[in-house]
Write a protein that binds this DNA or RNA. Structure first.
Lengths: 80, 80, 80, 80
DNA sequence: TCAGATAAAATCGCGC
DNA sequence: GCGCGATTTTATCTGA
């Protein structure tokens, strides 16, 4: 992009969209923290909970990845 | 909490609340990536944009902190 | 660390150890590339192979993580 | 390669060679981290050290490239 | 050139 | 309160 096509208003719009989304993201991160705090107050161990969440997430990712690799195989074998 | 007071259903509810929030958080992170990609497609440099966003965020944090300090002073002086 | 305790020879030794290890690491990365190239020359699809390697690695990581979480559970229950 | 020529044993051998090399690579990466940690414990700043290592590496690459260019010139002039 | 993997830096949460 | 370890985010690097 050269100077002639630069459009500050356009850039500003992108920046503001990002900032708005970023705020939402931070708000949700806050909510998550609060849930951990609440669980902790109820007697649960946050560290264990984090492990559980991470492990369940990994399971889910792995299942997705297995499906992807199956597709790759099928494609490689000309069967898809 | 000892084994006797463990309440699996309660824990599960916490975990699921966290997972739900986590998914929302990830969805927003995706959206942000897409905005960067769109901006890039329009000719902007994502790296520069990230710097701008980070800088503006720091500015904002600093302004907020300054206001908090001002409030502290005013309160201390019985003027708030 | 203040200037008086600075010991350039010591720092140099750290740097050189790192550089030596880094060269070994790069050499291995080269070897890996060569294996992929050889496999490709034999008719295999590098992309599929990378997926397989990544998936097997993830399996292994997940097994390790499951053991860690089991330990955490046992500890939380006062059984370890 | 079509299904008829697929040779699972051969593929497995490639995969295992890659995994073995990958483990060595990770072990070395671990060693490097440990050296940084040790240096940190001695009072050095890891970030600065990384800069030094990167800079020296660039220097080395440049020197090698300059020599290659020199060789090219010499060859072009029939003097090598 | 582009996305995807890898490594580095920054940030956050926990313990002492 | 502060370092330490873990997570998240950013930047670099590699391969398609």
């Amino acid at each position: 992009m050269n100077a002639g096509t630069l459009n500050a208003g356009h850039l500003r719009a992108f920046i503001e969209r990002i900032e708005k989304l970023d705020e939402e993201k931070r708000a949700i991160a806050e909510d998550i923290k609060e849930v951990y705090a609440e669980a902790k107050g109820t007697g649960y161990d946050a560290k264990v909970m984090r492990k559980i969440v991470a492990l369940r997430r990994r399971d889910k990712d792995e299942r997705r990845e297995e499906e992807e690799i199956l597709d790759l195989y099928l494609n490689a074998l000309g069967m898809a």
